[in-house]
Design a protein around this nucleic acid. Structure first.
Lengths: 135, 135
DNA sequence: TCTGTTACTTGCAAAAAACAAGTCATAAGA
DNA sequence: TCTTATGACTTGTTTTTTGCAAGTAACAGA
């Protein structure tokens, strides 16, 4: 992926950083707590290629969305976690959940979560954020 | 771009349809009323290649986010416009504006628009939606 | 020390994007 | 009505990115 910015439009800026087919899925797995290690990210569902994952992690770290540190409990692996800047993409992810759940007849989105999200967006946002932060 | 779905995750579903480097910019130009014709989309800032634009328009039409009709005032051109499904991506675009405006020091996002959006999200959403609908 | 994990890297083929040029259906002007 | 212009693309080619398979290096455990 290229890094060259295309304009000063805020949407374009956002897309230049996370507007590819994988970055937001990586952020999703970190935000919703499904993964913390390389292996988990690699195996979490959609089948990203290992070289692409490595490149994306490097990139997301470089632009400040996530950080990497050695796991003190097992020094051969690394813990990937979101920075505040990375966590701030949560509202974007939540809107994508709402849109996807609305238009995908086969969606796996839990209906009660979606209903709560629609009804009380701020509250759900705060809850997911809090859970993500304590990791 | 491929069309094959990767999973039933709503975020993944959304990204399968609009998670590339151009689709959301096209939607942006249609939502915010900067463009209605092929030429305008082609020249609106970021420099999409003509073959890529053509392919994306075909794709977005096929998945039901936009529609195409001949312009009655000049039958050699076509008017591209959003469907309700396409217009429903607006919340995603607005969150990207907020994120981009927050983290891009060179952002061109009008500060008063961003401030209003932060303060009264629902209202701005309704306004932009209303303006986009009357086209 | 040997074996297994974990996190990658490297090499190559396939797909997609960027770039340049050309086609085709209107429309507008002489 | 012939001629040129415009708008919306298509086609061919090069470059970049992705996907896939295999391999390597650091650390851990027995």
């Amino acid at each position: 992926m290229t890094t060259r910015r295309r304009s000063n439009c805020p949407i374009s800026f956002t897309l230049d950083l996370i507007g590819d087919r994988w970055s937001l899925l990586i952020l999703r797995d970190l935000v919703f707590g499904r993964a913390r290690f390389y292996r988990q990210l690699l195996e979490s569902g959609e089948g990203i290629a290992t070289n692409v994952l490595a490149e994306r992690l490097r990139r997301l770290e470089r632009v400040g969305l996530l950080s990497k540190r050695r796991d003190p409990d097992d020094r051969k692996r690394f813990i990937y976690s979101l920075t505040p800047k990375g966590l701030d993409t949560l509202p974007i992810l939540l809107e994508m959940i709402l849109w996807g759940a609305k238009y995908d007849p086969r969606t796996a989105a839990p209906p009660e979560f979606v209903a709560r999200l629609r009804k009380d967006r701020e509250r759900v946002l705060a809850e997911v954020r809090a859970r993500a932060e304590e990791k």
